[in-house]
Computed example of a mutant assay.
Amino acid sequence: MAVIIVLSLMAATGLSGYYLGRRSSSRSRSWRQRTRRPVLARQAVGLLALVAVSQLQRSAQRRVAPRRR
């Protein structure tokens, strides 16, 4: 449950930052500046996917592993 909340907050923060950054500049950008944001967005999505998979693996290991007393 906490993973879903963290992921949704990260997505909301990323989207709000994207829209604020997009509206702050009115001049046209070069092709390098235009391609930078999508590349960063893809990397951020990949990072979020890795974090989610890591959390799922940890929770699965906790459920499967026998508890020691």
Rank of each mutant, 00 (worst) to 15 (best):
M1H: 06
M1T: 04
M1A: 06
A2C: 00
A2H: 02
A2I: 05
V3L: 15
V3S: 12
I4T: 12
I4K: 09
I5Y: 06
I5Q: 06
V6A: 02
L7N: 00
L7W: 01
L7H: 01
S8V: 04
S8F: 08
M10L: 15
A11Q: 13
A11D: 07
A11K: 11
A12W: 04
A12M: 10
T13Q: 07
T13P: 01
T13L: 06
T13V: 04
T13W: 01
T13F: 01
G14C: 03
G14Q: 00
G14P: 01
G14D: 04
L15C: 07
G17K: 00
G17F: 02
G17S: 03
Y19V: 12
L20S: 05
G21H: 06
G21W: 05
G21F: 08
G21N: 10
G21E: 04
R22I: 03
R22E: 08
R23L: 15
R23G: 14
R23Q: 15
S24L: 05
S24N: 09
S24A: 13
S24Y: 08
S24C: 06
S25Y: 10
S25F: 09
S26R: 11
R27M: 02
S28A: 13
S30A: 07
S30K: 03
S30V: 03
S30L: 04
S30R: 03
W31T: 13
W31G: 03
R32N: 13
Q33C: 09
Q33I: 07
R34L: 04
R34Q: 13
T35W: 14
T35L: 15
T35V: 12
R36K: 14
R36T: 07
R36S: 11
R37S: 13
R37T: 14
V39D: 05
V39H: 09
V39G: 10
V39C: 11
L40D: 09
A41L: 14
R42D: 02
R42W: 09
R42G: 12
R42K: 10
Q43H: 08
A44D: 12
V45S: 13
V45H: 10
V45M: 11
G46W: 13
G46S: 11
G46M: 11
G46C: 12
L47Y: 14
L47W: 14
L47C: 14
L48W: 00
A49C: 15
A49R: 12
A49T: 14
A49L: 15
L50D: 05
L50V: 14
V51N: 00
A52C: 01
A52L: 00
S54K: 02
S54M: 03
Q55E: 15
Q55H: 10
L56A: 13
Q57Y: 11
Q57I: 10
R58T: 00
R58Y: 03
R58A: 02
R58E: 03
S59L: 02
S59P: 00
A60Q: 08
A60I: 05
Q61W: 11
Q61K: 04
R62Q: 10
R63E: 12
R63D: 04
R63Y: 07
V64C: 02
V64F: 05
A65N: 12
P66G: 07
R67G: 07
R69D: 10
R69M: 07
R69A: 06
R69E: 09
